[in-house]
Simulated scan of single mutants.
Amino acid sequence: MDILDTHAYDRRQKRYTSCALFVSLLPFFLSTALYFYLWTPDSPGSIMSAAVKTAPALLLAAAVLSWNGGQSVLGVVGGLVCSAVGDWCLVWPEHFLHGMGAFAAAHLLYSFTFLSSNYSAYSASSSVCFRFLYLILFMIGGGFYIYIFPFLQTAPDPELLVPAVGIYVVLIAVMGALAIRSRHTATLLGSLSFMVSDLSLALQIFKATPPMEYGNALVMVTYYSAQLLIAVGDIKAVENKDDFSKWKRS
């Protein structure tokens, strides 16, 4: 009977936690809806549009900080703040390189987070499978860079863009590989969604694909989904680690 009571209590706690998490994410959902409601194609950059665009990432950072505390400042919270800086910069096309630098810093912080003790590493028995997935991921990144290389050469400031985009592709591929290593579904899906968003954005910015009617919608939907999944994955990773620590001490 005690065991049944314990399981029932655990189920109630999980339901409570899920509800509390959803409530803490409501500001993110509302700000994301506001962005898509106010967004108009080819609208000029403004302080207001930049604020609306950056709000979802900052609200996600606040939610993660409230759940995980200061330990996430140099992790997912820091990555979300860097992403917000990148969002702000990309509102104005002339600040594209600054925005890309901010997102590169975000990928570095995410990568360091996925290497932390909060995320479990793969076992030796599954290492071959994961190495195969890593290879596929880097092949996709390399193939994309080779494809987009001629378009980078004809873009403004190719001497800066060619190496900068190459470094960025490596960083996001590493981030995706470490997400695979983490074995957290939300983290993995978020990282892959981030890659889809960035690749779609690059194809459009460097005119490597014909104009897409819903190109910006694709970029932003996958981008906000990626940040949400990475944030939830980090909250769950810390929560699972704390539960495991309590179980070991009991």
Rank of each mutant, 00 (worst) to 15 (best):
18 S>W: 13
152 L>Q: 03
61 A>E: 06
134 Y>E: 08
170 V>I: 14
177 A>M: 09
79 G>T: 08
108 L>M: 07
230 I>N: 01
8 A>L: 14
122 Y>D: 08
54 T>H: 05
129 C>F: 13
116 S>Y: 01
164 A>F: 10
103 F>E: 00
188 L>W: 04
158 P>H: 07
228 L>H: 01
127 S>P: 03
28 F>H: 03
241 K>L: 12
89 C>V: 05
95 H>E: 09
126 S>R: 08
11 R>G: 14
187 T>V: 15
134 Y>M: 07
79 G>H: 04
174 V>T: 10
4 L>W: 13
240 N>W: 01
115 L>W: 05
175 M>A: 07
161 L>G: 01
146 I>H: 14
97 L>H: 02
157 D>G: 11
100 M>D: 00
22 F>R: 11
193 S>D: 14
235 I>W: 02
72 S>D: 12
186 A>I: 02
191 S>L: 07
210 P>T: 06
63 A>E: 03
73 V>G: 03
146 I>L: 15
233 G>Q: 02
82 C>D: 03
213 E>W: 12
137 L>Y: 02
240 N>V: 06
166 G>F: 03
40 T>D: 09
61 A>C: 09
212 M>N: 07
247 W>C: 09
186 A>L: 15
124 A>I: 12
234 D>W: 06
234 D>N: 10
175 M>C: 15
52 V>L: 08
171 L>P: 00
171 L>T: 08
144 F>K: 04
76 V>C: 14
149 F>S: 14
122 Y>V: 13
39 W>C: 01
29 F>N: 11
247 W>I: 13
16 Y>M: 15
137 L>G: 01
192 L>R: 11
217 A>M: 13
43 S>I: 08
133 L>C: 12
172 I>F: 09
66 S>N: 10
1 M>R: 12
173 A>M: 07
123 S>W: 05
126 S>A: 04
86 G>Q: 03
3 I>Y: 07
131 R>Y: 13
27 P>H: 03
246 K>G: 08
217 A>V: 14
122 Y>K: 02
2 D>W: 09
30 L>C: 10
160 L>F: 12
7 H>N: 11
206 F>Y: 07
164 A>P: 00
152 L>H: 10
161 L>P: 00
103 F>K: 01
208 A>H: 06
15 R>M: 14
153 Q>R: 14
192 L>E: 02
245 S>T: 11
245 S>N: 15
216 N>T: 12
65 L>M: 09
69 G>W: 07
24 S>Y: 10
143 G>M: 02
85 V>Y: 05
94 E>S: 13
169 V>I: 10
99 G>D: 02
128 V>G: 13
226 A>E: 06
100 M>T: 00
184 H>I: 09
119 Y>P: 01
138 F>C: 15
225 S>R: 09
20 A>N: 07
153 Q>W: 07
126 S>P: 02
88 W>R: 03
154 T>D: 08
57 A>F: 03
126 S>C: 06
156 P>H: 03
62 A>L: 15
97 L>I: 07
229 L>Q: 00
